[in-house]
């Protein structure tokens, strides 16, 4: 419990860190032509959204939402549920994206967006 009170962020600073992370992910997605790197960027973006949800669910002085005698303050369980399922769904969709990347590589011989566009224009 003592850790909870020492562990204090400037009130909005944590949101700003999350936004910086989100923008890094966004930057990777739009600035890089490599499809694998784009998917990594999407993952970074995704994790930042998860963090945003979990951050909003936190109550200062609360504990993990597992009911126990003598504890009255819990963090909000609802964001935890949503993000828990979202992570597993996220990895499944990431796998689908990676599968598409593999097929793109087999069809075009490259995973760089520019090269694919050039090949398309030639054909």
């Amino acid at each position: 419990m003592s850790l909870e009170t020492e562990f204090y962020f400037p009130s909005l600073g944590l949101y700003w860190i999350i936004i910086v992370l989100m923008m890094i992910g966004f930057y990777i997605v739009i600035a890089h032509g490599n499809l694998v790197k784009k998917i990594v960027g999407l993952n970074v973006f995704q994790v930042s959204v998860f963090l945003l949800f979990i951050t909003m669910g936190k109550v200062l002085g609360g504990t993990a939402p597992i009911l126990k005698e003598g504890v009255s303050t819990y963090s909000n369980p609802l964001p935890h549920v949503l993000i828990l399922t979202a992570i597993v769904v996220g990895v499944a969709t990431t796998a689908l994206g990676l599968a598409l990347v593999v097929r793109v590589r087999e069809a075009f011989g490259t995973v760089e967006e520019d090269d694919i566009c050039a090949l398309e224009n030639d054909a």
Binding site: F7, V36, I39, V40, N43, V47, F50, I54, T55, G57, K58, V59, G62, T63, A64, P65, I66, Y74, S75, P79, H80, I83, L84, I87, V88, G90, V91, T94, A95, L98, V101, V102
Partner: peptide
């Protein structure tokens, strides 16, 4: 640290484990 133990559990198994293996496979 933010009290989401279930989520941390999932993220450690999924993000650090399976997603990495899949990306290496790709």
């Amino acid at each position: 640290a933010l009290d989401a133990v279930d989520v941390a559990f999932t993220e450690a198994a999924v993000g650090a484990g399976i997603a990495t293996v899949l990306m290496l496979g790709t």
